Simulated scan of single mutants.
Amino acid sequence: MIERIISRRTHDLGGGFEVGRVLPFHARRMVGPYIFFDHMGPVDLPAGIPRTLDVRPHPHIGLSTVTYLYDGALTHRDSVGSHQEIRPGEVNWMVAGRGITHSERFEHARAHGARMHGIQAWVALPVEDEETDPDFHHFAGADLPTWEEKGVKGRLIAGEAEGMKAAVKVHSPQFYMHWDMAAGAARILPAEHAERAVYVAAGSVEIAGQPLRTGQMAVLEPGRDVPVSASEAATVMVLGGAPLGERFLFWNFVSSSKERLEQAKEDWRQQRMKLPDGDDQEFTPLPQ
């Protein structure tokens, strides 16, 4: 039932703040349209942390970013004029399309101290939508379908699954869910999507009897219902959807075209991409 297990690898975002990177993985670049998956924390940030820890303004093309927190808060600003603080159980969904820039600041933690814990994923756009207009949407917890059953509390973050549909506008068939599982709880992940993965953000689970611990993602074989049971209390993310075909990735850029990536690099080098409103005094240099 499990095609591959991927363990997170430590990655520094550039200012000393480290995340656990799961996707892309050399032997598995994507799961459905999901091409990037970073696990942030859990980490306790004291009041007064330096701004160097923040995610400074940087660009994206060809994807949507989805930010989801379990603890803490982040302040988002972008080049289409959005200024939004995200808190646990909410969703920031940013469509980069033909190009957007944004920053994510630890302003709440800097003022008050905070425990930061969450996930940021990237969703590749279909070829016909890669150059769509950039956009941003915030969804509060009440906007997201939730349910409870036999030791499991679930939330559908994006897409469609099990007869539910989230408010987030997606560009291709997909699903993204958060399960909080009590110790001993179990449920079935249906085979309704072509590609699926299960990620353990906290605790541990078993999938068809095989253990999966914190920081591991199980990419599942297609076409079969899969039983997931919690060996201890666990926070689980379940995601996937229809594959989109090959995508190329450089830094924060995703495209079906290598030439488009080169154009995006040059646009950023030449500072042709507008920086976020209210946060245009810093930027992240293009990697060498």
Rank of each mutant, 00 (worst) to 15 (best):
Ile61Pro: 02
Gln270Thr: 13
Met217Lys: 02
Arg28Lys: 15
Glu128Trp: 05
Tyr176Pro: 02
Glu206Tyr: 01
Met40Arg: 08
Leu125Phe: 07
Ile49Asn: 11
Ile157Ala: 00
Gly215Ala: 14
Ser79Gln: 04
Gly203Asn: 01
Asp280Ala: 12
Ser172Thr: 13
Val55Arg: 10
Arg115Lys: 11
Asp133Trp: 05
Arg51His: 15
Gln216Pro: 05
Ile119Gln: 01
Glu192Phe: 07
Lys274Leu: 10
Leu144Glu: 06
Glu195Asp: 12
Ala194Pro: 02
Pro42Asn: 11
Leu189Ala: 07
Ser103Ile: 06
Arg196Asp: 02
Val170Thr: 10
Tyr70Cys: 05
Gly81Pro: 07
Gly223Ile: 14
Asp277Ile: 12
Gln288Thr: 09
Ala182Gly: 08
Ala183Leu: 01
Phe175Leu: 07
Ala186Cys: 12
Gly151Met: 06
Pro173Asp: 04
Ala233Val: 10
Glu90Met: 12
Gly245Lys: 13
Trp251Ser: 04
Ala233Ile: 10
Gln281Arg: 14
Phe248Ile: 01
Met1Gln: 11
Arg56Val: 12
Pro145Leu: 09
Ala161Ser: 09
Glu221Ile: 01
Asp180Leu: 13
Glu195Leu: 05
Asp279Thr: 03
Val19Thr: 04
His108Met: 03
Asp225Asn: 15
Gly16Leu: 06
Thr214Pro: 03
Gly184Cys: 11
Ile100Phe: 05
Lys265Gly: 01
Val198Ile: 15
Asp12Thr: 14
His137Ile: 04
His11Met: 12
Gly203Pro: 03
Gly14Trp: 03
Ala140Asp: 13
Leu249Phe: 06
Trp93Gln: 03
Met94Lys: 00
Gly184His: 12
Tyr68Ala: 01
Val254Met: 04
Gly141Leu: 09
Arg260Cys: 08
Leu212Ala: 06
Asp71Ala: 15
Phe36Lys: 00
Gly278Arg: 05
Glu246Val: 14
His193Cys: 03
Asp267Ile: 06
His26Thr: 10
Ala111Asn: 13
His83Trp: 07
Asp38Gln: 05
Phe36Trp: 13
Met1Ala: 14
Tyr34Met: 15
Gly72Cys: 10
Val127Trp: 07
Glu104Gln: 15
Gly141Lys: 07
His171Phe: 08
Leu74Val: 10
Arg155Ile: 02
Pro59Asn: 08
Ala167Thr: 05
His60Gln: 05
Ser82Phe: 02
Glu195Cys: 01
Glu259Tyr: 03
Ala161Met: 11
Val127Ile: 13
Pro88Arg: 11
Gly223Gln: 14
Arg196Gly: 07
Leu69Pro: 02
Ile35Ser: 13
Val127Gly: 00
Glu266Asp: 13
Leu189Arg: 04
Arg260Val: 01
Gly278Phe: 08
Ala202His: 12
Met1Ile: 08
His108Asp: 11
